[in-house]
Design a protein around this nucleic acid. Sequence first.
DNA 1: AAACTAGGCAACCAGAGTATTGCATATCCG
DNA 2: CGGATATGCAATACTCTGGTTGCCTAGTTT
Lengths: 115, 115
Amino acid sequence: MSKATSVSRRRTLAGSAPVFAALGDETRLALVARLSEGDAVSITQLTAGTDVTRQAITRHLEVLEDAGLVRGTRRGRERLWRLERAKLDIARRSLAQISDWWDEKLAALKLAVED
Amino acid sequence: MSKATSVSRRRTLAGSAPVFAALGDETRLALVARLSEGDAVSITQLTAGTDVTRQAITRHLEVLEDAGLVRGTRRGRERLWRLERAKLDIARRSLAQISDWWDEKLAALKLAVED
DNA sequence: AAACTAGGCAACCAGAGTATTGCATATCCG
DNA sequence: CGGATATGCAATACTCTGGTTGCCTAGTTT
Protein backbone atom coordinates (compact mmCIF):
# COMPACT_ATOMS: atom_id res chain seq x y z
CA MET A 1 0.00 0.00 0.00
CA SER A 2 1.31 3.45 -0.91
CA LYS A 3 2.06 6.14 1.62
CA ALA A 4 -0.35 8.47 -0.15
CA THR A 5 -3.10 5.94 0.37
CA SER A 6 -2.58 5.66 4.10
CA VAL A 7 -2.48 9.42 4.44
CA SER A 8 -5.82 9.73 2.67
CA ARG A 9 -7.16 7.04 4.93
CA ARG A 10 -6.30 8.98 7.99
CA ARG A 11 -7.86 12.07 6.46
CA THR A 12 -11.12 10.23 6.04
CA LEU A 13 -11.31 9.65 9.77
CA ALA A 14 -10.21 13.12 10.77
CA GLY A 15 -13.10 15.01 12.25
CA SER A 16 -14.91 11.93 13.46
CA ALA A 17 -13.09 11.90 16.77
CA PRO A 18 -15.33 14.57 18.40
CA VAL A 19 -18.39 12.54 17.51
CA PHE A 20 -16.93 9.38 19.01
CA ALA A 21 -15.81 11.32 22.05
CA ALA A 22 -19.37 12.55 22.53
CA LEU A 23 -20.65 9.00 22.31
CA GLY A 24 -17.96 7.77 24.68
CA ASP A 25 -19.92 8.25 27.86
CA GLU A 26 -22.56 5.90 29.23
CA THR A 27 -24.90 8.70 30.21
CA ARG A 28 -24.72 10.38 26.82
CA LEU A 29 -25.07 7.08 25.00
CA ALA A 30 -28.22 6.45 27.03
CA LEU A 31 -29.50 9.89 26.05
CA VAL A 32 -28.85 9.14 22.40
CA ALA A 33 -30.60 5.79 22.77
CA ARG A 34 -33.55 7.49 24.38
CA LEU A 35 -33.73 10.13 21.66
CA SER A 36 -33.46 7.49 18.97
CA GLU A 37 -37.01 6.58 19.91
CA GLY A 38 -37.89 9.52 17.74
CA ASP A 39 -39.77 11.91 19.96
CA ALA A 40 -38.50 15.30 21.04
CA VAL A 41 -37.91 15.13 24.77
CA SER A 42 -37.43 17.78 27.41
CA ILE A 43 -34.48 18.02 29.77
CA THR A 44 -36.60 17.15 32.79
CA GLN A 45 -37.94 14.06 31.06
CA LEU A 46 -34.44 13.04 30.03
CA THR A 47 -33.21 13.52 33.58
CA ALA A 48 -35.81 11.14 34.99
CA GLY A 49 -34.27 7.70 34.88
CA THR A 50 -30.72 8.83 35.40
CA ASP A 51 -28.83 9.12 38.64
CA VAL A 52 -27.41 12.57 38.02
CA THR A 53 -28.83 16.05 38.33
CA ARG A 54 -30.69 18.02 35.71
CA GLN A 55 -27.70 20.31 35.30
CA ALA A 56 -25.44 17.38 34.53
CA ILE A 57 -27.88 16.18 31.88
CA THR A 58 -28.03 19.68 30.42
CA ARG A 59 -24.27 19.68 30.17
CA HIS A 60 -24.26 16.27 28.46
CA LEU A 61 -26.85 17.48 25.98
CA GLU A 62 -24.67 20.48 25.19
CA VAL A 63 -21.74 18.16 24.54
CA LEU A 64 -23.87 16.09 22.18
CA GLU A 65 -25.09 19.26 20.52
CA ASP A 66 -21.53 20.53 20.01
CA ALA A 67 -20.74 17.22 18.34
CA GLY A 68 -23.77 17.76 16.10
CA LEU A 69 -25.47 14.60 17.30
CA VAL A 70 -28.46 16.32 18.80
CA ARG A 71 -30.40 19.54 18.47
CA GLY A 72 -32.40 21.45 21.03
CA THR A 73 -35.28 23.82 20.39
CA ARG A 74 -37.25 25.93 22.78
CA ARG A 75 -40.96 25.43 23.18
CA GLY A 76 -42.50 27.56 25.82
CA ARG A 77 -40.74 27.06 29.11
CA GLU A 78 -39.16 23.82 28.07
CA ARG A 79 -36.37 22.84 25.75
CA LEU A 80 -36.99 19.88 23.50
CA TRP A 81 -34.19 17.73 22.18
CA ARG A 82 -34.13 15.49 19.17
CA LEU A 83 -31.55 13.30 17.51
CA GLU A 84 -29.64 14.64 14.54
CA ARG A 85 -29.22 11.73 12.19
CA ALA A 86 -26.55 13.13 9.86
CA LYS A 87 -23.63 13.08 12.29
CA LEU A 88 -24.54 9.61 13.45
CA ASP A 89 -24.22 8.42 9.88
CA ILE A 90 -20.82 10.04 9.57
CA ALA A 91 -19.64 8.05 12.57
CA ARG A 92 -21.12 4.91 11.06
CA ARG A 93 -19.26 5.49 7.85
CA SER A 94 -16.01 6.02 9.71
CA LEU A 95 -16.26 2.63 11.36
CA ALA A 96 -17.36 1.01 8.12
CA GLN A 97 -14.35 2.57 6.48
CA ILE A 98 -11.93 1.02 8.92
CA SER A 99 -13.59 -2.36 8.56
CA ASP A 100 -13.42 -2.08 4.80
CA TRP A 101 -9.72 -1.34 4.86
CA TRP A 102 -9.28 -4.36 7.02
CA ASP A 103 -11.28 -6.56 4.67
CA GLU A 104 -9.33 -5.19 1.74
CA LYS A 105 -6.10 -6.17 3.45
CA LEU A 106 -7.34 -9.66 4.23
CA ALA A 107 -8.38 -10.10 0.62
CA ALA A 108 -4.93 -9.02 -0.52
CA LEU A 109 -3.35 -11.50 1.85
CA LYS A 110 -5.57 -14.26 0.57
CA LEU A 111 -4.58 -13.46 -2.99
CA ALA A 112 -0.92 -13.50 -2.04
CA VAL A 113 -1.29 -16.91 -0.46
CA GLU A 114 -3.08 -18.24 -3.50
CA ASP A 115 -0.30 -17.11 -5.80
CA MET B 1 -43.19 1.87 22.37
CA SER B 2 -43.12 0.11 25.72
CA LYS B 3 -40.92 1.14 28.59
CA ALA B 4 -39.41 -2.35 28.66
CA THR B 5 -38.39 -1.91 25.04
CA SER B 6 -36.55 1.34 25.62
CA VAL B 7 -34.79 -0.13 28.61
CA SER B 8 -33.57 -3.05 26.52
CA ARG B 9 -32.44 -0.56 23.91
CA ARG B 10 -30.30 1.22 26.39
CA ARG B 11 -28.91 -2.08 27.57
CA THR B 12 -27.82 -2.91 24.05
CA LEU B 13 -25.64 0.18 23.98
CA ALA B 14 -24.28 -0.21 27.48
CA GLY B 15 -20.69 -1.30 27.29
CA SER B 16 -20.05 0.36 23.99
CA ALA B 17 -19.21 3.68 25.59
CA PRO B 18 -15.60 2.72 26.46
CA VAL B 19 -15.01 1.76 22.84
CA PHE B 20 -16.35 5.06 21.56
CA ALA B 21 -14.39 6.91 24.20
CA ALA B 22 -11.23 5.18 23.01
CA LEU B 23 -11.99 6.23 19.43
CA GLY B 24 -12.76 9.76 20.53
CA ASP B 25 -9.26 11.11 20.16
CA GLU B 26 -7.62 12.16 16.91
CA THR B 27 -4.32 10.54 17.76
CA ARG B 28 -5.89 7.22 18.67
CA LEU B 29 -8.14 7.29 15.64
CA ALA B 30 -5.06 7.78 13.52
CA LEU B 31 -3.42 4.81 15.23
CA VAL B 32 -6.46 2.68 14.51
CA ALA B 33 -6.43 3.84 10.89
CA ARG B 34 -2.77 2.96 10.64
CA LEU B 35 -3.31 -0.46 12.16
CA SER B 36 -6.25 -1.09 9.87
CA GLU B 37 -3.69 -1.43 7.12
CA GLY B 38 -3.31 -4.91 8.52
CA ASP B 39 0.31 -5.21 9.55
CA ALA B 40 1.51 -5.52 13.12
CA VAL B 41 3.43 -2.37 13.92
CA SER B 42 5.87 -1.46 16.69
CA ILE B 43 5.51 1.49 19.03
CA THR B 44 8.46 3.27 17.50
CA GLN B 45 7.02 2.88 14.03
CA LEU B 46 3.67 4.14 15.23
CA THR B 47 5.31 7.11 16.88
CA ALA B 48 6.98 8.20 13.65
CA GLY B 49 4.51 10.43 11.90
CA THR B 50 2.94 11.85 15.02
CA ASP B 51 3.89 15.00 16.87
CA VAL B 52 3.94 13.43 20.30
CA THR B 53 6.45 11.35 22.20
CA ARG B 54 6.77 7.60 22.23
CA GLN B 55 5.45 7.49 25.79
CA ALA B 56 2.33 9.33 24.77
CA ILE B 57 1.75 6.84 21.97
CA THR B 58 2.31 3.99 24.40
CA ARG B 59 -0.41 5.40 26.64
CA HIS B 60 -2.79 5.77 23.72
CA LEU B 61 -2.17 2.18 22.74
CA GLU B 62 -2.91 1.09 26.29
CA VAL B 63 -6.20 2.97 26.19
CA LEU B 64 -7.09 1.26 22.93
CA GLU B 65 -6.05 -2.06 24.40
CA ASP B 66 -8.23 -1.54 27.48
CA ALA B 67 -11.13 -0.87 25.16
CA GLY B 68 -10.30 -4.12 23.38
CA LEU B 69 -9.71 -2.41 20.06
CA VAL B 70 -6.10 -3.40 19.78
CA ARG B 71 -3.74 -6.07 21.02
CA GLY B 72 -0.04 -5.95 21.67
CA THR B 73 2.39 -8.83 21.61
CA ARG B 74 6.04 -8.91 22.43
CA ARG B 75 8.57 -9.95 19.80
CA GLY B 76 12.13 -9.65 20.94
CA ARG B 77 12.79 -6.16 22.16
CA GLU B 78 9.81 -4.67 20.43
CA ARG B 79 6.12 -4.76 21.02
CA LEU B 80 3.91 -5.26 17.99
CA TRP B 81 0.37 -3.99 17.84
CA ARG B 82 -2.47 -5.15 15.70
CA LEU B 83 -6.10 -4.23 15.33
CA GLU B 84 -8.71 -6.32 17.10
CA ARG B 85 -11.63 -6.51 14.74
CA ALA B 86 -14.28 -7.84 17.14
CA LYS B 87 -14.70 -4.74 19.27
CA LEU B 88 -14.78 -2.55 16.22
CA ASP B 89 -17.71 -4.56 14.95
CA ILE B 90 -19.50 -4.17 18.26
CA ALA B 91 -19.21 -0.41 17.95
CA ARG B 92 -20.47 -0.64 14.39
CA ARG B 93 -23.46 -2.61 15.48
CA SER B 94 -24.22 -0.09 18.22
CA LEU B 95 -24.44 2.74 15.73
CA ALA B 96 -26.39 0.61 13.29
CA GLN B 97 -28.75 -0.21 16.11
CA ILE B 98 -29.49 3.44 16.84
CA SER B 99 -30.01 4.13 13.16
CA ASP B 100 -32.35 1.19 12.89
CA TRP B 101 -34.45 2.38 15.81
CA TRP B 102 -34.65 5.72 14.11
CA ASP B 103 -35.71 4.20 10.81
CA GLU B 104 -38.25 2.09 12.60
CA LYS B 105 -39.72 5.19 14.18
CA LEU B 106 -39.83 7.03 10.86
CA ALA B 107 -41.60 4.09 9.27
CA ALA B 108 -44.15 4.10 12.08
CA LEU B 109 -44.71 7.80 11.57
CA LYS B 110 -45.18 7.29 7.87
CA LEU B 111 -47.76 4.63 8.50
CA ALA B 112 -49.59 6.89 10.93
CA VAL B 113 -49.73 9.68 8.35
CA GLU B 114 -51.03 7.33 5.69
CA ASP B 115 -53.88 6.23 7.92
C1' DA C 1 32.01 -6.58 25.41
C1' DA C 2 30.39 -2.11 23.75
C1' DA C 3 27.27 0.52 21.50
C1' DC C 4 22.87 1.06 19.84
C1' DT C 5 17.83 0.41 19.65
C1' DA C 6 13.12 -0.55 21.71
C1' DG C 7 10.55 -0.17 25.33
C1' DG C 8 9.13 0.22 30.49
C1' DC C 9 8.54 2.97 34.75
C1' DA C 10 7.78 6.95 37.60
C1' DA C 11 7.07 11.68 38.90
C1' DC C 12 4.82 15.53 37.54
C1' DC C 13 1.91 19.08 35.36
C1' DA C 14 -1.77 21.81 33.04
C1' DG C 15 -6.11 21.69 31.27
C1' DA C 16 -10.46 19.51 30.24
C1' DG C 17 -14.38 17.08 31.83
C1' DT C 18 -18.09 15.63 35.23
C1' DA C 19 -20.96 16.73 38.74
C1' DT C 20 -22.70 19.47 42.66
C1' DT C 21 -25.18 23.27 45.08
C1' DG C 22 -27.49 27.68 45.29
C1' DC C 23 -29.94 31.16 43.22
C1' DA C 24 -32.27 33.64 39.33
C1' DT C 25 -35.56 33.77 35.56
C1' DA C 26 -39.21 32.53 32.61
C1' DT C 27 -43.72 30.05 31.73
C1' DC C 28 -47.89 27.98 32.67
C1' DC C 29 -52.17 27.25 35.13
C1' DG C 30 -56.04 27.75 38.34
C1' DC D 1 -52.09 37.33 40.95
C1' DG D 2 -49.53 33.46 43.01
C1' DG D 3 -47.83 28.94 43.07
C1' DA D 4 -45.75 25.33 40.67
C1' DT D 5 -42.78 23.85 36.89
C1' DA D 6 -38.77 24.10 33.55
C1' DT D 7 -34.66 25.83 32.69
C1' DG D 8 -30.49 29.03 32.91
C1' DC D 9 -26.30 30.79 35.21
C1' DA D 10 -22.39 30.76 38.32
C1' DA D 11 -19.03 29.24 41.55
C1' DT D 12 -16.75 25.34 43.06
C1' DA D 13 -14.65 20.68 43.84
C1' DC D 14 -12.57 16.78 42.09
C1' DT D 15 -11.00 13.44 38.85
C1' DC D 16 -9.41 12.13 34.45
C1' DT D 17 -6.48 12.96 30.35
C1' DG D 18 -2.83 13.78 27.54
C1' DG D 19 1.58 15.02 27.50
C1' DT D 20 6.44 15.72 29.19
C1' DT D 21 11.10 14.63 31.03
C1' DG D 22 14.51 11.65 33.12
C1' DC D 23 16.22 7.36 34.00
C1' DC D 24 16.41 2.24 33.83
C1' DT D 25 16.17 -2.44 31.59
C1' DA D 26 16.37 -5.65 27.93
C1' DG D 27 17.34 -7.33 23.41
C1' DT D 28 20.40 -6.54 18.92
C1' DT D 29 24.27 -5.79 16.40
C1' DT D 30 29.11 -5.37 15.38
